[in-house]
């Protein structure tokens, strides 16, 4: 099997790294597209967690897999919506730098 020698912790380390890479990217990047990509990273790290826990803890169940599939589908929809918003922002502000898009303040 695929997981014969690899312990569960290794997967979790990868997913944690991905998650924090995503968080870091979300907080530091200024380009909306890259922020969107960071969000995708976070989502995918979660996907990995679902699959790993499903596989190691409840091998006879499938809910984790279904959840991952849902997340992928929703992430796709979300990306489409987000990109549409970003395009509109670009049309309006002529930039997709997130710092310049601060109309919704006090």
């Amino acid at each position: 099997m695929l997981n014969a020698g690899i312990p569960m912790e290794a997967f979790l380390v990868v997913s944690t790294l991905m998650f924090f890479a995503g968080v870091y990217g979300f907080l530091t990047r200024r380009n909306l597209i890259t922020i969107l990509m960071s969000v995708e990273l976070i989502l995918n790290s979660v996907n990995i967690n679902f699959l790993v826990f499903n596989r190691f803890l409840f091998p006879d169940k499938l809910q984790g897999h279904f959840f991952s599939l849902f997340i992928i589908a929703i992430a796709a929809a979300e990306a489409a919506v987000a990109i549409a918003i970003i395009i509109n922002i670009y049309r309006h502000f002529n930039t997709i730098n997130v710092e310049d898009v601060d109309k919704m303040r006090y």
Partner: peptide, 17 residues
């Protein structure tokens, strides 16, 4: 205190995290 409402998405996220 209104400065907290800066409109900067990433600030909100940072505070949240």
């Amino acid at each position: 205190i209104r400065d907290l409402q800066s409109g900067q998405l990433q600030k909100y996220a940072f505070v949240f995290i």
